[in-house]
């Protein structure tokens, strides 16, 4: 038997140590492929949608989140593909309607469309004050539609408040009141109409003109 020189042994040990460190690092940073749990056809379809979204300059994160939600809900692969494709369509429409808005606002606007609003109703939000976010307005709008408020009623109420400069708290308080009334059994459309009449147009009168018919009823809440 030949004697291996100490240097070669040392090199072997160093290699084994490096391998061990690499294994540790790989286990530490293990991030399983999120699409790995889809069947090959569904995975391919999802990847195509993601590529299309990237090419169109649309955010892929909301779409990937939808994939993960579907997987977590144990939805069928074809179902997941259909949902993601539909969401992609909403994102595309929202972008075409609103122009350059943030990823968050785009996702919120897509949810409004998904809840039943028409793109033309969303178009009123294309013009906005610098630095003003429509996240809260879109979120409450989508909620009202999801709870059964008639589309045109919800759209006109939210749009009116937005155009009158209502802030996030105003939108949120409106939502809170309406959903409370709905939970107590009031008709969703009626609940909105009642609460809109009580809602001031905004917190700062110098900037905001209250909606018509609100002057005599602002302190009723």
């Amino acid at each position: 038997m030949t004697h291996t020189p100490w240097r070669r042994r040392a090199a072997s040990l160093a290699s084994a140590s490096a391998l061990a460190v690499l294994c540790a690092v790989s286990v530490r940073g293990q991030d399983p492929d999120p699409l790995g749990r889809l069947d090959p056809n569904s995975r391919f379809a999802i990847e195509l949608i993601m590529d299309s979204a990237s090419t169109a300059g649309l955010p892929t994160r909301p779409l990937m989140s939808k994939v993960l939600e579907g997987i977590s809900r144990k939805a069928d692969g074809r179902r997941i593909v259909a949902v993601v494709r539909t969401d992609f369509g909403y994102l595309k429409t929202a972008r075409a309607t609103l122009g350059g808005v943030s990823e968050e606002e785009l996702a919120a606007a897509a949810a409004v469309l998904e809840a039943g609003a028409k793109p033309s109703q969303l178009a009123a939000f294309r013009v906005r004050q610098r630095g003003r976010s429509d996240l809260e307005a879109f979120t409450d709008w989508a909620d009202l539609l999801t709870r059964g408020v008639p589309r045109d009623d919800a759209s006109s109420a939210i749009t009116k408040l937005w155009q009158d400069g209502a802030d996030d708290a105003t939108f949120h308080n409106l939502w809170k009141s309406v959903q409370s009334d709905i939970l107590q059994g009031l008709n969703p459309g009626t609940a909105l109409q009642n609460r809109v009449r009580e809602t001031p147009g905004g917190p700062t009168p110098r900037k905001v003109k209250p909606p018509e018919g609100q002057q005599e009823n602002q302190s009723s809440r």
Partner: peptide, 17 residues
Amino acid sequence: APLAPDGGFGHANSVKI
């Protein structure tokens, strides 16, 4: 919290801003 549309999976989610 406000609801988001069910998104095609049959159940609505909530939204946190």
